[in-house]
Amino acid sequence: MSSLLRARIARPLAARPSVQLFTAAARRNIHEIYTVDEAKAKAFIDEEVAVEEHAGATAGLWYKISLFLAIPLCAAAIYRSYGMEKEHIHHLKHDAEHYDEDSAPNEFVYQNIRNKDFFWGDGDKTAFWSDLANHHKR
Rank of each mutant, 00 (worst) to 15 (best):
V51Y: 09
E107R: 11
W129S: 00
S66D: 14
E48N: 09
G83T: 03
S81D: 15
K64D: 13
R114D: 08
V51Q: 07
E47F: 04
L69A: 06
F119L: 03
K64I: 03
A76V: 13
I113K: 13
L92M: 05
E87V: 04
D122F: 01
I89C: 01
I45G: 04
K86L: 11
A50E: 11
L67T: 13
V49L: 08
E48L: 09
Y79L: 11
H54V: 11
A76N: 11
K116Q: 15
L61T: 08
H98P: 00
Y82V: 05
A70K: 10
E48D: 04
N115R: 11
Y82C: 03
Y110M: 03
R80M: 05
Y82Q: 04
S103F: 06
E87P: 00
N106Q: 08
T126R: 09
D122T: 08
D102P: 00
A57C: 05
I71Q: 01
G123R: 12
I65P: 01
F118L: 13
H94E: 13
F68R: 02
A127C: 04
W129E: 01
P72Y: 07
M84A: 14
N112S: 11
Y63Q: 15
K86I: 03
N106H: 03
F108S: 12
V49M: 04
K125V: 00
H90Q: 11
A55V: 10
H94Q: 12
V49T: 07
R114Q: 13
A55K: 10
A50C: 02
Y79S: 07
A57Y: 04
D124Q: 14
T58D: 04
R114E: 10
D102M: 05
D46P: 02
F128Y: 14
D95T: 01
P72E: 07
G83A: 06
S103M: 05
D100Y: 01
W129A: 01
D46F: 03
D124S: 15
I78R: 04
Y82K: 03
D95E: 08
P72M: 06
P72L: 08
T58K: 07
D100F: 01
G56D: 14
L61R: 10
Q111E: 12
E53I: 09
F68I: 00
Q111L: 03
P105R: 05
P72A: 11
M84V: 14
E107Q: 15
I71D: 00
A127P: 00
Y110P: 00
Y79K: 04
A104Y: 02
A59G: 02
Y99E: 00
D95R: 09
K93Q: 09
W62S: 02
I65T: 05
E87L: 09
R114Y: 10
D117G: 13
A104W: 01
I45L: 10
A57W: 06
G121Q: 03
V109L: 14
Y79F: 13
I113Q: 11
H54Y: 15
Y79T: 09
E52I: 11
E107N: 09
S66E: 11
G121W: 01
F119Y: 04
S81E: 15
K116P: 01
A59F: 09
H54K: 15
S81H: 13
F44C: 12
A70L: 12
T126Y: 02
